[in-house]
Amino acid sequence: MNLALWIVTGLLAVVALAGGITKTFVPKKKLAEANGGEWTADVSVGFVKTLGVLELLAAVGLILPAVLDIAPVMVPVTAVCWILLMVGAMTTHFRHGEFKLVVLNLAYLAMAVFVAVGRFGPESFSS
């Protein structure tokens, strides 16, 4: 179970890192032209960049606390925050009719639930 949690956490961290880098450093106009990025046309540059920074922080929060053994409880807390972020992403993509992305975000949400439940419960770092 611990190995499965690490694998899923690593995958989520990679997703968060990729999304964070994209939203933080790619110009909003280019994002709006990309498949799945149409939603950025409806929001401010600051909002997109803020989401990008939050995703970068999520990537860090999913891995480093456990690796460094400094406040490892932050791993499941970060997973819960990722769940909330995915609910927002699903809502946004649903409003834009991007149903494939809704399903993809639902998969990321399910992975985060797995990490949160596993790390708060039977495979917590404190046990």
Rank of each mutant, 00 (worst) to 15 (best):
F94T: 05
F114A: 13
A112M: 03
A34N: 03
V73F: 15
E38D: 09
R119P: 00
L11E: 01
V77M: 08
V80H: 04
F125C: 07
K23V: 07
R95I: 00
R95A: 10
M74I: 07
G10P: 13
L64R: 02
V43P: 01
A79C: 06
L17T: 07
F94S: 04
A13M: 06
A116T: 04
A18C: 08
V103W: 00
V80T: 07
P27C: 03
L84G: 12
N2H: 11
V113D: 02
G37V: 02
L106M: 03
L31M: 14
I63C: 03
L57V: 01
A71S: 09
L56Y: 06
P65E: 01
V80S: 02
E33K: 09
T24L: 10
P76W: 08
G97L: 08
L109K: 01
A66D: 14
A18E: 01
V8G: 10
S44L: 11
V80N: 03
H93S: 02
V48D: 07
G97K: 00
V8C: 13
C81Q: 04
I7T: 07
L106N: 00
I70L: 14
E98K: 01
L56T: 11
F125E: 09
A71D: 01
W39H: 09
V77F: 12
V73W: 14
A32P: 08
D42A: 13
V60T: 09
M74N: 01
A59Q: 11
T9K: 10
V87A: 08
L85M: 10
A66G: 12
R95S: 12
A32C: 14
Y108D: 00
T22N: 14
N35I: 03
N105I: 07
F94D: 00
W82S: 03
V67C: 11
G97E: 11
G36C: 12
V102I: 08
V102N: 00
A110Y: 09
F25T: 05
A13I: 08
G10C: 14
D69P: 11
S126V: 15
G36E: 12
F114V: 07
V60A: 10
E123L: 04
R95W: 00
G10S: 08
P76G: 12
L68R: 15
Y108H: 05
A4N: 05
M74T: 04
M90G: 13
E123I: 00
E33Q: 14
G88H: 07
K30W: 13
T9G: 14
G10A: 12
R95P: 02
P72G: 08
S127T: 02
V48G: 05
V80D: 04
K23D: 15
G20L: 00
